[in-house]
Amino acid sequence: MRKLEMPITEEIARELKAGEMVELSGIIYTGRDAAHKRFVAAIENGEELPFNPDGQGIYYVGPTPSKPGQAIGSAGPTTSYRMDDLTIPLLEKGLRIMIGKGKRADHVIDGMKKYGAVYLAAIGGAGAYISDSIKECEVIAYDDLGAEAVRKLRVEGLKLTVAIDASGNNIYETGRKKYEKK
């Protein structure tokens, strides 16, 4: 298992291979479709984003409220294709890691290849397990969005799988081909 400390460089992103397991530590940010719409609007209007995406990662999650003594509630991944039409502007700004579940559109994969980014799969239905790796959580923008507000997370040992690498290799395609009947 490869250990990654955030932020990462384009070079490190390009070294990761589809199917590889990683253990992620450091700062990542959250954002779902409502936040992504605001990110894109800010970019189009020449405004600053709530965080600098260069070298960073976004986890597609809308966590539940935390219980006393916890940094965050259940934090399972959101289906990633919901962000597909809003992803390229962030890749252009240096976003290196996207974390979620499910397939991605061809234009997003093309953007990942062009800009040197990877898509990491989190386990759907494992929100409580994932939240154990989240040590700190702070809302940094768009708090009016509730669960979809942008959060800054400090994670330790978050276990993920490289689902699509920066060369476009894709476990959703290669894994399926292994088991197709001929």
Rank of each mutant, 00 (worst) to 15 (best):
residue 6 M to W: 12
residue 7 P to K: 13
residue 8 I to M: 14
residue 8 I to L: 00
residue 9 T to R: 13
residue 10 E to F: 10
residue 12 I to G: 09
residue 13 A to N: 04
residue 15 E to D: 15
residue 16 L to M: 15
residue 17 K to S: 05
residue 21 M to Y: 10
residue 21 M to H: 12
residue 22 V to S: 06
residue 23 E to S: 15
residue 23 E to R: 15
residue 23 E to P: 11
residue 24 L to G: 06
residue 29 Y to L: 07
residue 29 Y to H: 14
residue 29 Y to K: 02
residue 31 G to E: 02
residue 31 G to F: 09
residue 34 A to L: 11
residue 35 A to S: 14
residue 35 A to P: 07
residue 37 K to N: 08
residue 38 R to L: 15
residue 42 A to Q: 08
residue 43 I to R: 06
residue 44 E to Q: 15
residue 46 G to A: 09
residue 51 F to S: 12
residue 52 N to Q: 13
residue 54 D to L: 02
residue 55 G to F: 12
residue 55 G to S: 11
residue 62 G to M: 09
residue 62 G to Q: 08
residue 68 P to D: 12
residue 70 Q to R: 14
residue 71 A to D: 09
residue 75 A to Q: 03
residue 79 T to G: 07
residue 81 Y to D: 09
residue 81 Y to P: 01
residue 81 Y to V: 06
residue 82 R to Y: 10
residue 82 R to K: 12
residue 82 R to F: 08
residue 84 D to K: 05
residue 85 D to H: 07
residue 89 P to Y: 06
residue 89 P to L: 08
residue 92 E to F: 05
residue 92 E to Y: 01
residue 94 G to L: 00
residue 96 R to C: 00
residue 96 R to N: 00
residue 97 I to S: 07
residue 103 K to C: 03
residue 105 A to Y: 10
residue 109 I to P: 07
residue 110 D to M: 03
residue 113 K to I: 14
residue 113 K to A: 09
residue 116 G to I: 07
residue 117 A to E: 00
residue 118 V to A: 01
residue 119 Y to R: 03
residue 120 L to S: 07
residue 121 A to D: 12
residue 122 A to M: 10
residue 123 I to P: 00
residue 123 I to H: 03
residue 124 G to V: 03
residue 126 A to I: 01
residue 127 G to M: 03
residue 130 I to N: 02
residue 132 D to R: 11
residue 134 I to T: 04
residue 139 V to L: 05
residue 141 A to N: 00
residue 141 A to I: 06
residue 141 A to H: 08
residue 142 Y to F: 15
residue 144 D to P: 04
residue 148 E to C: 08
residue 149 A to I: 01
residue 154 R to E: 04
residue 157 G to C: 09
residue 158 L to V: 04
residue 162 V to A: 04
residue 162 V to G: 10
residue 163 A to G: 14
residue 163 A to F: 09
residue 164 I to N: 10
residue 167 S to E: 15
residue 167 S to K: 15
residue 169 N to W: 02
residue 170 N to D: 15
residue 171 I to R: 00
residue 178 K to N: 08
residue 182 K to E: 14
